[in-house]
Design a protein around this nucleic acid. Structure first.
Lengths: 251, 251
DNA sequence: TTTTTATATTTGTCAAACCTTTTGCGTTTT
DNA sequence: AAAACGCAAAAGGTTTGACAAATATAAAAA
C-alpha cells in the first residue's frame, strides 16, 4: 500500500480553489472580462462556504487576475492583463528585496548602469520626437531651483523612464520598470545638494542630446558613467547612515 | 466647502487592513519572523470581524509577505523576502502578459537578444569555473538524442539561466529570471526538430567557449545572433498555429 | 527515561444572517 | 413625451458564533 500521500491535499481549501480558478484563467477557459458565477454559486459548486470562496477570490484579486463589483450588474470578472498593474507588482517585489538589503549597493549600481546603457543604445535607434519631448519636459522641470528634493527625485525617475520608453520595446520597458522604480529611490535617498543637481542635470542633458543625434555609443557611455558615478557619493552617504530600529507603535 | 472627497474611504475594510499591515512590514515596524497578533486579536484591535481579517491576511500571504501556521506556537509571521519567491511572482506576471499576447514576438526576441547579450558580456568578465561547469552540464545533457522536447527545452532554459548566473549580479539575475522563464516557453513551443537542436547546441557551445575565454564581444554577438536567429522560424511556426477557443468545461 | 496521552492555542472552515452599493424599472411629475 | 424620482432586487461586503483540525507543550503512564 505504498501510494503517494501527497497531492491528496495541496493546502487549504481556499488555496486549492484559487489555484483551480487561476488555472482556468491562464488556460483561457475563462475569457477576459467574462463573469464568474456569484460567490454563493461558487461556494455551492465547490462544496465550500462563501467566506472560503472569498478568501480564494481575494488572493486572485491581489494578483490582478480578477476584479469585483457590487450590484445587480456586478460580480467577479476576469481582468485583462494590465501592463501598469503587472509593473507595479514586480516593482513591489523588487522594492521589498532592495529595502530588506538582499542586494549589494555595488550590484545595483552595476546592474542599472549596464541595463540603462543598453536602453540608451536602443533609444538612440528608435526614439521618436515625442520621446525627446518627454525628456525635455523633465529637464526643464529639473532646472527649477525651488524644487524640493522629493520632486526632483521624482522627475529624475521620470527622465530615466522616458529613456526606457524611447526604446519602443514593451518587454524591455516592463522589466526596466522594476529596475528604475525600485532601485532609484535607494540611490536617491541622501544626495542632491545643489551642485549635485547641476551635475545630474548636465548628464541628463548630454544623454538626451546623444539620443537625439542617434549616437548610440555616446549615449550609452554617458548613461553608464552617470549612473556609476553615483556610487562613490552613495557609499559615503550610506556610511553615515546607521539604520536605527524604529520604535513607533506596531500592530 | 471645496474639500477633497477622496481619502475618506480607500476601499474595503480588508484592503485597508492589508495596506496598514503591509506598510508596517515595509517600514520595518514589523521585523522579519516577528509574529503578528492572533487573528482574533487583530479583529479586536481593528474593530472588524475575523473573516475580514483573514481576507486581508490572505492578500498579504499571496504577496509573500506573511505566512501562517496552526497550533499553539503557530500564528502569522512576517516572511523574510525570498529571492525565489519574488522571482516566481514576477515570472508569473510576465508570463501572463506574454500569454495574453500583450507583446509582439519581435519585441520579445529583440529584448531577449539585447539583454542576454549584455549578460554574456558580464558573464565573460565575472564567470567562475563553477559557472562554466553548470553550462557544460546542460550541454552534455542536450547531446542526448533520446531527450524529449520538453526536457530539451528545460535544459535550454537552464543553460540561459546559467549564463545569467555567471554575471554574478543579483539584481540582474532577478529581472533576467522574468525574461527567461516567461519568454522562452513561448519561443520554444514548436521548434526543435533534430537539426534545429544541433544548431542550438552548437550555438550554446560556442557561447560557453567565448565566455570561458573571457571574450566579451564574441560571446555577446553569438548570443544575440542565437536568440534573434529564432525569429524567422518562430514567425513561420506561429503563422500555422491559429489558437482555437478551447471549449472545455469552465467554472 | 521514554512513550503516550491530554490539553490549550491558533488557524481553517462553516452557516446564516444583515449591511451597502449598484442597477434597472416603474411611477410620478413636468 | 421626457425627465426626475424612488423603490426593489441582486450582488459583493461584513458580522456573529460556532466547530474542526493541527500542533506544541505539559502531564501522565509505561
Amino acid at each position: 500500500m505504498a501510494l503517494h500521500y501527497d497531492e491528496i491535499v495541496r493546502g487549504s481549501l481556499a488555496k486549492q480553489v484559487a489555484d483551480l480558478i487561476r488555472a482556468a484563467i491562464l488556460e483561457g477557459r475563462l475569457q477576459v472580462d467574462e463573469r464568474l458565477p456569484t460567490e454563493e454559486e461558487l461556494a455551492r459548486r465547490f462544496g465550500i462556504s462563501r467566506p472560503t470562496v472569498r478568501e480564494a477570490l481575494k488572493v486572485l484579486a491581489a494578483q490582478n487576475l480578477i476584479r469585483s463589483r457590487r450590484g445587480p450588474a456586478g460580480g467577479t470578472f476576469v481582468t485583462r492583463p494590465d501592463l501598469d498593474a503587472a509593473a507595479r507588482t514586480i516593482t513591489d517585489a523588487a522594492t521589498l528585496l532592495v529595502g530588506m538589503g538582499r542586494f549589494e549597493i555595488d550590484e545595483i549600481v552595476a546592474a542599472r548602469g549596464q541595463t540603462e546603457a543598453l536602453c540608451c543604445r536602443l533609444a538612440a535607434r528608435n526614439r521618436t520626437d515625442e520621446d525627446l519631448d518627454a525628456m525635455a519636459q523633465e529637464l526643464s522641470l529639473q532646472q527649477d531651483e525651488t524644487l524640493n528634493d522629493e520632486d526632483f527625485c521624482a522627475s529624475d525617475v521620470r527622465f530615466h523612464r522616458a529613456v526606457v520608453q524611447a526604446t519602443g520595446n514593451g518587454p524591455l520597458q516592463f522589466i526596466m520598470h522594476a529596475m528604475i522604480e525600485s532601485f532609484i529611490p535607494i540611490t536617491n535617498m541622501l544626495i542632491y545638494r545643489h551642485h549635485e543637481r547641476r551635475r545630474t542635470i548636465g548628464a541628463h542633458q548630454k544623454i538626451r542630446a546623444a539620443i537625439a543625434e542617434r549616437d548610440e555609443d555616446t549615449a550609452a557611455a554617458l548613461m553608464q558613467h552617470h549612473v556609476e558615478g553615483m556610487r562613490a557619493v552613495l557609499d559615503q552617504a550610506l556610511a553615515h547612515r546607521r539604520p536605527e530600529k524604529p520604535g513607533g507603535e506596531t500592530i
